[in-house]
Design a binder for these strands. Structure first.
Length: 805
RNA sequence: GCGGGCAUGGCGGAAUGGCAGACGCGCCAGACUUAGGAUCUGGUGCCUUCGGGCGUAAGAGUUCAAGUCUCUUUGUCCGCACCA
């Protein structure tokens, strides 16, 4: 017997307990079964707790995973904690508690919240990036990168957050401010650990061809990697024996190069100190440029600045003409060679610069008006004023000139990428220590693998220092160690890793999370990887997704993981906005707390609404009324129990609809069109109500279809109805295309494209027969009103269009 | 600036080139009620002389047929942003 009223609180508690006790959703280590690895981005356990955005991704993947289990797959759907990071550290500093303690509390809170929503995670495989048993392997991967020359220390200007007092990766700087705290970012020269992600630029690009990522993600990654093809060309200088190399994507315009621009930081300035007659002015300009942040340099792009390098000129290799050399900060030292040949007639930036400083322009591609603007078209233009290139189209000229340059030894083909190496150091306490030791005698020495993990010292004060050094540097007992190589006195590296480190390989650890010999066993990695389906936010496309692909590609190259690409499929969910349509934030006061919704409406209604509210990949404002509507639907589903009539199959009049709904829901789940899948089930339930009864077979099928979205209520009703083994052990329902058809269908009748009526016709009526016979029908003739038929178009199952006069 | 997406009732949104507005919210009316912020039933794009006419940001085009395809314009969101 069942309770008359649907009471989610008691039902949900009951089933969550049963699932835990029966280990219902734990992945099996049976490597013979077909597997499915569903992944969501593991949360950062912040003090604020879960927000309504987490369940959107989680519920979607939970639906897919629950469906896969019913389809017979061995499913791995894990959860873990990306727990290193600044907010925890800052909270710890402020409240004088150890970050590890804060982390533990937050994790416990998060887990409890997730469990209340009924996600089918395998909690036995939890990973925690701050657990030494985990970060031992994060450090191990770093050592492998180091051994293969992909981790190096470099003195370089980095992005420095003035508030976090910490270096940031380029990817962490958004609009000139720190992505995390919003404080301004300045340039600061420091010695930093770097990871050579640029060595993998081409592989990261090529790999995208073989994976099923939504197009938006691929595009963003491609843009970020920023591959361009061109040539490097040497320009001789008027100083004997000296030359400058430039990079250009438009070698075809070489005859139009009327001056050259060097980045202010270009080493040539100091090298030619003797020859440059206005050296002081050049240095002054360089200092001015250095004061600006990258952001300011970009912001001020409307007005170009620069200074001419006097006393030295460059020689255009194709026509021997001497051209002036300028310094300008619109040329970046960090891209290409830090020097360009300027072709003002055909490059917008050069055009502006030439305009401002009155430099000459030479048109070498005909088709535009270079007095008005730079002509940058590369399709239709034809070469002029270009010696042996004259008359060629741009594409042909490109090839011809590069062949010529290579032959003459003036230059070579060159591919460049915008991608920069990854700044891997952070001057903070709460991160993985970088396992390196500095020895006066031996230099940089990696900590031997058998001494991992390098633990964080347990101390009282981990506030960042104002001098930009890690708080670890003040902990002399920890810092002072012995050199693993010579045994002499040495100092530990005091920088820690960025948060992206732990999250770059967590999905590997899930495969074999308790292994203390390897990061995971070969067999487990072979079986589970790649991740079959990974859902996460668009905000991680150029950071986490690229970094973790890089690590995975590297680990594949050194034989640790079997496949090159870690993720077979990547989808992305839209953000949930506040009820007012603005981004949810504490300061706007429009934050919805999942706990409140679960308490008031139940976890199932909450899950249902999260999936029903709109297209999954789009940003949608929250509506508590909408959520209540989903609760109403579940109330109605519950009430079906009082309408059940005999019959293990489908009733005649609903048979077609039942099969159509099974198909619709099954396919829509796969396409992540959860809103329309739920709408179809709502329609079905409405039809049961209209009829006043539902057969056992119909109810059975509805419960199976609804189970992935609303697992608790469906388990309970399944048990109430005595349908047998728990619903999560049942096979996914199948549809029969034949049974989806009805004997008769209603089609629209159009006269000249306008709908004039509807008629019932046999469903199997052929096109020819329909076009011949239907216009004879009395009801069709009536709609025609005596007009002369010119043409008849019949679309089976849809409409009949009669063109008539 | 460059690249890409989007634009449909009061709201969230449906719609392989083939009956626009599924489903839900809200609203209106009715039923049951001492009561209704519960539940149930019906209605709900706009105009209408009740025949019908008009409707998917605006304008043109292709088609028997356009929310859907093409072009132009506007708005909006996202990505990149001096990357040579």
């Amino acid at each position: 017997m069942y309770q008359e009223n649907y009471d989610p609180a008691s039902i949900e508690k009951k089933w969550q307990k049963i699932w835990a006790e029966t280990h219902a959703f734990e992945a099996e280590n049976d490597y013979n079964k077909p597997k499915f690895y569903g992944l969501i981005e593991f949360p950062y356990p912040s003090g604020a707790g879960l927000h309504v955005g987490h369940p959107r991704s989680n519920t979607a993947m939970d639906i897919i995973c629950r469906k896969r289990r019913m389809e017979g797959y061995n499913v791995l759907f894990p959860i873990g904690w990306d727990a290193f990071g600044l907010p925890t550290e800052n909270y710890a500093i402020k409240n004088k508690v150890h970050p590890a303690e804060v982390t533990q509390q937050n994790i416990d809170h998060f887990r409890q919240q997730l469990q209340k929503i009924g996600f089918s995670f395998d909690y036995t495989r939890e990973v925690n990036t701050t657990d030494p048993a985990y970060f031992k392997w994060t450090q191990w991967i770093f050592l492998q990168l180091y051994k293969h020359g992909l981790a190096y220390k470099a003195q370089m200007p980095i992005n420095w957050c003035t508030s976090c007092k910490c270096g940031l990766a380029n990817e962490e700087v958004v609009d000139g401010v720190c992505e995390r705290c919003g404080a301004p970012v300045i340039r600061k020269v420091k010695t930093q650990w770097m990871l050579k992600i640029t060595a993998y630029a081409q592989q990261l690009l090529d790999g995208l061809e073989h994976v099923d990522f939504i197009e938006k993600v691929k595009t963003q990654q491609r843009n970020w990697i920023g591959r361009s093809e061109g040539a490097e060309v040497d320009f001789a200088l008027t100083v004997p024996g000296e030359k400058v190399r430039v990079y250009t994507t438009r070698p075809d315009t070489l005859f139009g190069a009327t001056y050259m621009v060097l980045s202010p930081e270009h080493p040539l300035v100091d090298k030619l100190k003797e020859q440059i007659t206005n050296y002081d002015a050049c240095v002054a300009y360089r200092q001015e440029a250095a004061r600006k942040s990258d952001f300011e340099r970009a912001e001020l792009n409307k007005e170009k600045t620069g200074v001419q390098l006097e006393g030295v000129r460059a020689v255009n290799p194709v026509n021997g003409k001497e051209i002036p050399i300028w310094l300008s900060d619109y040329v970046l030292m960090t891209y290409g060679t830090g020097a360009i040949m300027a072709v003002p007639a055909h490059d917008t930036r050069d055009w502006e610069f030439a305009r401002k400083f009155g430099l000459p322009m030479v048109e070498v591609v005909a088709g535009g008006d270079i007095n008005q603007e730079a002509y940058t078209d590369i399709q239709d233009g034809v070469m002029v004023n270009s010696g042996f290139l004259d008359g060629l189209k741009v594409a042909q000229a490109k090839k011809a000139i590069v062949d010529y340059l290579v032959e003459k030894g003036y230059g070579e083909r060159k591919v460049n990428y915008k991608l920069r190496d990854w700044v891997f150091s952070r001057q903070r306490y709460w991160g993985e220590p970088i396992p390196m030791v500095h020895c006066d005698k031996c230099g940089m020495v990696p900590v031997p693998e058998d001494q991992l993990p390098v633990l964080l010292p347990n101390v009282k004060n981990y506030e960042p220092t104002d001098d930009g050094e890690s708080p670890l540097s003040a902990m002399t007992e920890w810092v002072n160690t012995t050199c693993p190589h010579c045994g002499g006195p040495a100092k530990r590296e005091t920088d820690t890793m960025p948060q992206w480190a732990g999250s770059s390989w967590y999905f590997m650890r899930y495969c074999d999370p308790h292994n203390d010999k390897e990061l995971a066993s070969k067999e487990a990695l072979q079986y589970w990887l790649p991740v079959d389906w990974y859902n996460g936010g668009m905000e991680h496309t150029t950071l986490h997704l690229l970094y973790s692909r890089f690590w995975h590609l590297f680990l594949h190259d050194i034989g640790v993981v079997p496949a090159p690409e870690p993720y077979q499929k990547r989808t992305s969910h839209g953000m949930i906005l506040g009820e007012n349509g603005e981004k949810m934030s504490k300061s706007r006061g429009n934050v919805i707390n999942p706990d409140d919704i679960v308490r008031e409406l139940g976890a199932d209604a909450f899950r249902l609404y999260e999936m029903f509210m709109g297209a999954f990949d789009q940003a949608i404002p929250w509506s508590t009324n909408g959520a209540k509507g989903c609760r109403r639907f579940l109330d109605r589903v519950w009430k079906l129990q009082s309408m059940v009539c005999d019959g293990e199959g489908f009733s005649k009049d609903l048979e077609a609809e039942m099969h159509q709904t099974i198909k619709k829901v099954s396919e829509d789940y796969e396409k992540m069109k959860f809103n329309t899948a739920i709408a179809a089930m709502m329609t079905l339930v409405n039809d049961f109500f209209a009829k006043g009864q539902v057969t056992r077979g119909e109810l059975r099928t509805l419960l199976l279809l609804l189970n992935p979205v609303a697992p608790h209520i469906t388990e309970e009703m399944w048990e109430n109805q005595g349908f047998g083994a728990p619903i999560h052990h049942q096979p996914w329902p199948k549809w029969d295309e034949e049974k989806m058809k009805t004997a008769e269908v209603e089609i629209a009748v159009q006269i000249c494209g306008k709908v004039r009526g509807r008629i019932m016709i046999p469903a199997d009526m052929g096109k020819e027969q329909a076009e011949r016979e239907l216009i004879q029908r009395e009801d069709v003739q009536a709609l025609l009103g005596g007009k002369t038929v010119m043409k008849v178009i019949f679309v089976p199952g849809r409409l009949l269009n009669i063109v008539a006069k």
